[in-house]
């Protein structure tokens, strides 16, 4: 096996990390870079828990070869906000009851962020499309959908 050095931008920082050609991006983020907010619920791109934003698009990092991220700009939940400067999506997820077990939450927020980064006035259908690959078994998606539209409002008002 030929290890390689992967260089990419992760949450605004340039990262260099040794990876194998068989490594998937999710595993590198979780196991080598300790970003446990990238969850693994299926390993087959079917649950969305590992969703990150790569070059502006939401992708399931468990089926992206790590080396494909060479030179890419990658954002994970860890990079979008925290205490004192929460992202509006994090705020609205917390305030509106959109979080239950929390396992889908980081991926769900990243999918929603990819949407709102491009579209600050999404329709209900656009919100549902954006999170259609993020399985949540707890909430019935009702409060998640509401949290995304509320965050969009907040973002619009903030401008």
């Amino acid at each position: 096996m030929s290890s390689k050095i992967l260089t990419f931008t992760l949450n605004g920082e340039t990262i260099r990390v040794v990876v194998e050609p068989t490594d998937m991006l999710a595993d590198v983020l979780r196991d080598k870079l300790n970003l446990i907010g990238v969850k693994k619920g299926c390993g087959q791109g079917e649950c969305g828990a590992c969703t990150v934003i790569m070059n502006g698009d939401a992708v399931t990092s468990c089926i992206i070869p790590a080396l494909k991220a060479e030179g890419a700009v990658v954002e994970t939940i860890e990079g979008i906000g925290g205490p004192g400067k929460y992202h509006p999506l994090q705020e609205s997820f917390m305030d509106l009851g959109a979080i239950q077990c929390g396992f889908c939450t980081p991926g769900m927020i990243m999918s929603a962020k990819a949407l709102l980064d491009k579209n600050e006035q999404p329709t209900r259908e656009e919100i549902r499309e954006a999170i259609s690959g993020n399985i949540c078994r707890c909430t019935g998606y009702v409060k998640i959908e509401k949290a995304v539209s509320t965050a969009a409002e907040k973002i619009r008002e903030g401008k």
Binding site: L35, G37, E78, G81, Y86, Q90, F93, M94, G102, F103
Partner: peptide, 21 residues
């Protein structure tokens, strides 16, 4: 009262630890 869940911040920031982490 519909107070904000006490575990919300950890879960919304990806810092909440699960067994698989």
């Amino acid at each position: 009262q519909s107070v904000r869940r006490l575990d919300a911040a950890e879960k919304a920031t990806g810092t909440a630890v699960f067994s698989s982490d």
